[in-house]
Simulated scan of single mutants.
Amino acid sequence: MAKRLLSSRERDQFSLKFGQASFDLLSDFLVNFNQKNKENLNSLSKCCGSFKQKRLLECIFLICQELKLDPSVGYHATELLQRFMVKHLTDLLVTPATAGAAASEPRSLEDAIFDQLREKFPLILFSCVQLANKMSLTRHMIDTSTAVCFLHLLGLSVSKKTVLESELMVFKGLEFRLDYPNPLTSVETLLEVLGHNEPSVPAKRLYHLCRHVLQFIALEKAAIYDGLLKVTTQRSSPSKEQREKFVAVTEDCMLLGVGVIAVATFILYFRKWEQVVGELSHITGISMQSIRDFAHMTLAHIVGF
């Protein structure tokens, strides 16, 4: 007999909210997340971060806000967009048919590919949001009719078939894998573990501020990490080699997670800051100095902003 799908109300009853997960579950999840984060850092492409620029993030966050989607969807969609576009562009660059078409015209291959993607990109971005939302398993799903109406409001004339085909293209391009680590998941997991290890730390109150801090860091990523690179290398103009090595730091979700929590703690509960930084270092193995440097650099940009 086929199993009945859970209703949205039933899914809400079975889904764990912040602060409800058992420590054993959190421990397993943290180990698994750490492993995925390491795998991601070991397989970074040269185009890493190219599709995480401020304007793209603002667009994704605004779409999620307009459609009343959970903020986690935006961060997940960003990861999907980055991976899909790098692979898609790579495939286009090595496809003989594309190269032949470009060679017959007085333009470069890059120009030809840009023209192909210029009109498709907004729909690709939206498809990443849709896939991320489906992975979130929340009750607020955007059906195809709603998606078409929303895209029409944005000035995109698309059909239901086009929307579904785009989503399938992205899904296939990602090789049917959507479970990539994202920074909000890192923050939530680390904050829950911190709350278990140090009950005196008001993790639930920190949680709301952490979301705002994370969004600020995501939008101001280029400036914050550039400042952190200069502090780390102790050079006002880091070399190309130093910048290339530093790319892994910019994509480390664990470092970002502890940095966000450290910043939020500094703002709300400064008297517990050293205690929290020490516990975060113990949980992740990231040095206290690295956490302090990240927090101080972020705070400097928040104050200066």
Results as ranks from 00 to 15, higher is better:
Ser27Asp: 13
Leu56Met: 08
Ala21Gln: 11
Gly49Cys: 10
Thr233Asp: 01
Thr185Leu: 11
Phe121Trp: 07
Asn37Tyr: 04
Phe305Met: 08
Thr189Ile: 07
Lys161Thr: 13
His301Phe: 12
Leu16Gln: 14
Lys204Leu: 15
Gly278Ala: 11
Asp226Gly: 07
Ser104Asp: 12
Gly19Ala: 10
Asp226Phe: 08
Ala132Arg: 05
Ala147Ser: 09
Phe121Pro: 00
Ala2Asp: 15
Arg271Asn: 15
Lys68Phe: 09
Met254Arg: 02
Pro106Thr: 05
Gly19Ile: 01
Leu178Thr: 10
Leu81Ile: 04
Phe270Ala: 13
Leu280Lys: 09
Asp226Thr: 10
Phe266Ser: 07
Ser108Val: 09
Ala295Met: 10
Phe114Thr: 13
Pro96Lys: 11
Gln289Gly: 09
Val73Asn: 06
Leu178Tyr: 08
Ala102Gln: 05
Arg235Lys: 10
Leu92Tyr: 12
Ser27Val: 06
Thr250Lys: 14
His76Lys: 13
Ala222Phe: 12
Val148Tyr: 01
Met169Ser: 04
Asp226Trp: 01
Ile124Asn: 03
Met135Phe: 12
Leu44Cys: 05
Gly195Tyr: 05
Gln215Glu: 15
Thr95His: 10
Gly74Val: 02
Phe246Thr: 01
Leu6Glu: 06
Phe14Val: 15
Ser200Cys: 11
Thr98Met: 06
Gln53Met: 04
Val163Met: 14
Gly285Met: 08
Thr98Asn: 15
Thr95Pro: 02
Val277Ile: 08
Phe126Thr: 04
Lys240Trp: 10
Asp115Ala: 14
Gln275Gly: 14
Lys17Leu: 15
Phe216Lys: 04
Leu174Pro: 02
Ser157Lys: 14
Leu153Gln: 14
Leu268Asn: 07
Phe51Gln: 03
Val193Trp: 09
Arg139Met: 08
Arg292His: 09
Gly155Gln: 07
Ile60Ser: 08
